[in-house]
Amino acid sequence: MASQLPPYASLPERIWFYSFRVLVAAILFFLIFPILVIIPLSFNAQDFFTFTPEMLRFDPAGYSLKHYEDFFTNSQWQNAFWNSVKIAPMATLISVTLGTLAAIGLTQPHVPFRTTIMAILISPMIVPLIISAAGMFFFYSSVNLQGTYWGVVFAHAVLGIPFVIITVTATLAGFDRSLTRAAANLGAGPVRTFFKVQMPLILPGVIAGGLFAFVTSFDEVVVVLLVGSAGQKTLPWQMFLGLREQISPTILAAATILVAISVVLLIVLEMLRRRNERLRGMSPG
């Protein structure tokens, strides 16, 4: 059974071929439907979490922007949104800067204890968040970082580091080392070689890692619940509270905005991947 049905396929083979595709389509529907369904629901004119008869009749009266209005005017949601916007870029900056340097170091030949270091740097992704969060609470309290902006930023930066390390080392694996040697041979110093030769070529990997780190911070609840205080209440935190206590339809508007953000991020990543493939195709080897 290949991608295309051969002309000599028997009837059972034909039936299996098509029913398999229907099965996969159903699974993909299961993956996508829950994300798409909240988009129309967020325009509900009622405070319901389901389709009203008006909405099903496509009656304009059944739709409204009131949940979005609430999201953009309610001070709690706005506060949470701006807190997220303040925390995530700073955490991303730290993880990308330190992570890229370390990834370059890790891909040098002859690094002692390479696998061990790698395992340690990736561990924040593996350790359950509640454990990281509890540990950070204990430790950050003892150094007066608990409940501060920088405490949350540092915690989120650590959580983003594995993603930066993974994507940048993957990009560096395809990097042609003779290019840096050529640059050095032509008289460029290490710093100049890095910014003029290496950085432009690994940039897609760095940006992809940065996007992962950004999303990690922008989406994170557990750590901020324990390490942060009311002053650092982020958007996911607000959504978490909203879902657990009084489930308010404004969550639907917030969720739709987050879906829109992830679609944009996905498009950026896809463009980076294509550019990377194009560049790979051009370079020999």
Binding site: L31, I35, D219, L243, A255, V259, S262
Partner: peptide
């Protein structure tokens, strides 16, 4: 797309 969508969403 689901992979990139917020866990809370």
């Amino acid at each position: 797309l689901p992979f990139w969508t917020s866990l809370l969403v």
